[in-house]
């Protein structure tokens, strides 16, 4: 064999390797491109066109965005929904994640039955939001529901309200239901983060005479920062994608009186039509989607930046 045939043999091995890598990478890449990247890019494109049903019309620049944000006939819906989403996020941060933190701190002390509690708190997390929504909607039925029966039974008759029927109580009620369903998730994430803190650090603090509260505040809390960052960002994304629970419990129109309207519901109504919004409006819907995406994206980046600065590297 002359030298060139050795080269050819080597090149053949190289080619084989490249084919193998392509074989591994192409199918997943193709799936991702077709069903994620292409639609995401198209959404951007669609938002700057006029649409007539399923047919794309003229290029209209930022006209669709203006309609969402500035058109006096409809921008109330956007800002109302945005306000509600923000409200959901803040409430969940306090109620759901606050409770989760308390649970995690308690569970980290390994009380009797810690394992059992973990499993119990996590059960609703694995259930479909549809099931949870319907179940609570039935419990909250003003006449037949369990909640008001309990309230009547314990003598709190004036508390037996149509919880989902009043503009003042509908959203808070749904937020509580969401907190009930999801509290286990941040609790477990926090707990795992606490378990990851080296035991000797906590013991050292205890030997230094720190109270349990001081240890939690000065040692555990700063060291579980990465988990907090993740939960804050995930809660934000979850709050701004809130759709299933209000859809099931309050319907597409965010009743009563749009008090439970969310950006997700508004987007759905705009895109696919409803009684109030009329027919499908793909252009305006796409513009709305882009805006929601930007809100989530910008918040995630800023929140991560701020929260990561607080994180300390463990060794």
């Amino acid at each position: 064999m002359d030298n060139s045939s050795y080269k050819r043999a080597k090149n053949f091995r190289k080619l084989k390797r490249q084919l193998w890598l392509s074989f591994l990478l192409l199918p997943p890449a193709l799936i991702l491109i077709t069903f994620i990247f292409l639609p995401m890019a198209s959404a951007l494109l669609y938002s700057v066109y006029d649409w007539d049903g399923l047919i794309r019309g003229d290029f209209v620049g930022l006209e669709n965005f203006k309609k969402v944000l500035l058109d006096p006939d409809r921008n109330w819906f956007f800002f109302n929904a945005l306000k509600n989403n923000v409200l959901v996020f803040i409430s969940l941060m306090v109620i759901q994640n606050g409770t989760a933190l308390v649970i995690a701190l308690f569970l980290a002390r390994e009380p009797k039955g810690a394992r059992f509690y973990q499993v119990v708190f996590f059960i609703p997390v694995i259930l479909s939001t549809v099931i949870i929504g319907f179940q609570w909607k039935m419990f909250l039925n003003p006449v037949f529901g369990l909640i008001n029966k309990i309230l009547n039974a314990v003598g709190l008759n004036e508390w037996a309200l149509p919880w989902l029927g009043l503009p003042e109580t509908a959203l808070p009620t749904m937020i509580l239901v969401n907190a009930w369903a999801w509290v286990g998730f941040p609790a477990i994430v926090f707990l795992a983060a606490i378990h990851r803190i080296p035991q000797d650090l906590i013991e050292a603090a205890r030997l230094d005479g720190g109270s349990e509260w001081q240890i939690a505040k000065d040692i555990i809390w700063p060291l579980m920062a990465p988990a907090v960052t993740i939960i804050v960002v995930l809660t934000f994304i979850g709050s701004f994608n809130w759709f299933e629970l209000p859809y099931i419990m309050a319907g597409l129109e965010g009743s009563p009186a749009y008090s439970t309207d969310m950006l997700g519901l508004l987007f759905y109504r705009t895109a696919f039509g409803s009684i109030s919004a009329g027919g499908t409006e793909f252009g305006i819907g796409s513009a709305l989607a882009v805006i929601i995406f930007l809100v989530i994206f910008v918040f995630s980046i800023i929140a991560t930046k701020i929260l990561v600065a607080r994180e300390v590297e463990l060794n």
Binding site: M1, Y6, K7, A9, K10, R13
Partner: peptide, 9 residues
Amino acid sequence: NNQRIDHLA
């Protein structure tokens, strides 16, 4: 053994 092997797997 006087056979080139560096191109082989």
